[in-house]
Deep mutational scan, measured.
Amino acid sequence: MMITLRKLPLAVAVAAGVMSAQAMAVDFHGYARSGIGWTGSGGEQQCFQTTGAQSKYRLGNECETYAELKLGQEVWKEGDKSFYFDTNVAYSVAQQNDWEATDPAFREANVQGKNLIEWLPGSTIWAGKRFYQRHDVHMIDFYYWDISGPGAGLENIDVGFGKLSLAATRSSEAGGSSSFASNNIYDYTNETANDVFDVRLAQMEINPGGTLELGVDYGRANLRDNYRLVDGASKDGWLFTAEHTQSVLKGFNKFVVQYATDSMTSQGKGLSQGSGVAFDNEKFAYNINNNGHMLRILDHGAISMGDNWDMMYVGMYQDINWDNDNGTKWWTVGIRPMYKWTPIMSTVMEIGYDNVESQRTGDKNNQYKITLAQQWQAGDSIWSRPAIRVFATYAKWDEKWGYDYTGNADNNANFGKAVPADFNGGSFGRGDSDEWTFGAQMEIWW
């Protein structure tokens, strides 16, 4: 008995050590931004985005507190085989008060198993909700290839000249389909599951310092038995992507060409959309029709120009041509140079221009935006974070068209359509004006 009692403290210590080691193995990653800002004409900070554009130049032009908190852990490992559990909870508030209630979004919860298939060394099996191989332009917060959501897949299969990845994910639309009631009355209240099937071939070395990635995505509306879509709904579509990445000037340049059809055009990033119906009456549900095509040509990157200068840049042309004439032509160009006074202090400027032409009206909206920021960051790279910055932003815009969301679809035949700025004596778009804002912001990723 005495021997047992003497061994007990040692056993407890060993158990505590094991539990401590396991606790220390938890990975904590994430992203956050928050700050305070004012508008020159009075009131809180207002942000500037061109009507019809899918993004905006973000430096000194973000008006919310946003965070993603990721917890993950390698829960099992034997040799080169392992299982990893990953989670991500995100939230966004308007940064107007101390207490701002919000419903967090559970954006990731997945398990990734590496090297589980003997004859596919280096590959990963995964299932669950996941940010899946996302491609974006940081300076405009624009995701041009992103099929994230609940799904499953097999990735990084070594095929000799590259890595092959296969995945299936889902994005549902509210009110996407109906069941038959009586007297030809349909009640569009059932969600429609939109499935996306993704095939990618990446890391193909085609020139010194250059790699090529090719991808095909097929999206479709997956209806339940005895349900139907509204007439004209976009049932399926394709997205084709080619991306060349070149190492240059201690950074990279990415050149991207994408072509999409029908349900893959509205978001243009790989998620299927077009079966959703915002109104019970299918007579007024025309606005979900996105049959047509999209072409996107994009070049972006980040480079170092000597010891003291870094720069991000982007140039993009996007043409969404829809059968219902509600598409757009959008082109944007911008730069973000950074001058480093010390390894932790810099001055950053961002200059961006957007131009969006309405397919329906032929009119154009444009905006110039310039931001000057003094910044303190954890390192001497344009990617170094955390960063604390004080900024001043000036924007000038001239908008000739907007979307008509007055009333509702039952009493407005133009609901959701592009109209000229002065349509029917109204005021659509943001008109011709300018404004400036100033404030302070922190940004961090880890």
Rank of each mutant, 00 (worst) to 15 (best):
Y218F: 13
D98N: 03
G60D: 04
A23G: 05
A167V: 04
Q367L: 15
N88I: 03
R296C: 00
N287S: 11
Y227H: 10
Q374H: 09
A221G: 10
T261I: 02
I297S: 04
T211I: 12
Q273H: 04
S433G: 11
D225Y: 10
S384T: 09
V14F: 05
Y403C: 05
G334D: 00
P386Q: 04
Q22H: 04
Q22P: 06
R430H: 04
K70N: 09
N308S: 07
A32E: 06
I288F: 15
H293N: 05
G327C: 10
S304T: 11
K129N: 10
Y188C: 01
N290K: 06
Y368C: 10
A193E: 10
R228S: 10
S41G: 06
G37S: 06
S178F: 01
A302S: 11
N287I: 03
T347P: 08
D262G: 08
G79S: 14
M204L: 03
P104S: 11
K340E: 00
P121Q: 15
G175D: 00
D363E: 09
M305L: 13
H135N: 11
D363N: 11
Q96R: 09
E64K: 15
E44A: 08
N412S: 01
E350K: 00
T347N: 05
I320N: 08
S247R: 11
S177A: 08
E443K: 13
W76S: 10
G122V: 13
H300L: 14
N287K: 10
G149V: 09
I344F: 07
V12A: 04
A260V: 00
S304Y: 06
T124I: 04
A32G: 09
Q46H: 12
W126L: 11
D86Y: 11
K269N: 11
A25G: 06
K396R: 01
K7N: 08
T4I: 02
A15T: 01
W119L: 15
Q359E: 05
F255I: 10
Q267L: 05
A21D: 08
G292C: 05
N253K: 08
A421S: 13
E44V: 04
E68D: 12
G407V: 08
V93I: 01
T342A: 00
N61K: 12
Q95E: 06
G402C: 07
Y259S: 15
G162C: 12
I370N: 01
R228C: 08
F142I: 06
T406P: 08
N222I: 04
N355H: 11
Y403H: 07
V348M: 02
G153D: 00
K400I: 06
T361S: 04
M24V: 03
D299A: 03
V390D: 00
G270R: 00
A67V: 03
E191A: 06
D225N: 02
S179T: 09
F284Y: 13
W330C: 07
D354N: 02
G362S: 01
D195E: 12
G251D: 00
F161C: 15
G72V: 03
H138R: 03
Y91C: 07
Y286N: 09
L154Q: 14
N110K: 15
I3L: 05
H29L: 06
V257D: 00
G251C: 07
H293L: 04
M2L: 09
M1K: 12
H293Y: 01
R389C: 01
L116P: 09
A21V: 05
A221D: 06
D146Y: 12
Q22L: 03
A413V: 06
F48Y: 04
V333L: 12
F48L: 13
V12I: 06
A242S: 09
W436C: 14
S55I: 10
T393P: 06
N321I: 07
M349L: 08
G276S: 02
T245N: 05
L59I: 12
R200C: 01
Y143H: 14
V137D: 08
N291K: 10
Q46E: 03
G425S: 12
F197L: 12
T328I: 03
Q359L: 05
G17S: 11
R385L: 10
N156K: 15
W376L: 09
T51S: 13
E118K: 12
R134P: 09
N355S: 08
W341S: 06
H300N: 03
I344T: 11
W38S: 14
S171A: 12
W436L: 14
T124S: 15
C63W: 15
M264T: 02
F28Y: 07
M139T: 05
D86N: 06
D280E: 09
G402A: 11
Q273K: 11
A53T: 01
I206L: 15
G251S: 03
Y368H: 10
G274V: 05
V390F: 13
N61T: 14
P9H: 09
N366T: 14
P343R: 11
D217E: 02
G30S: 01
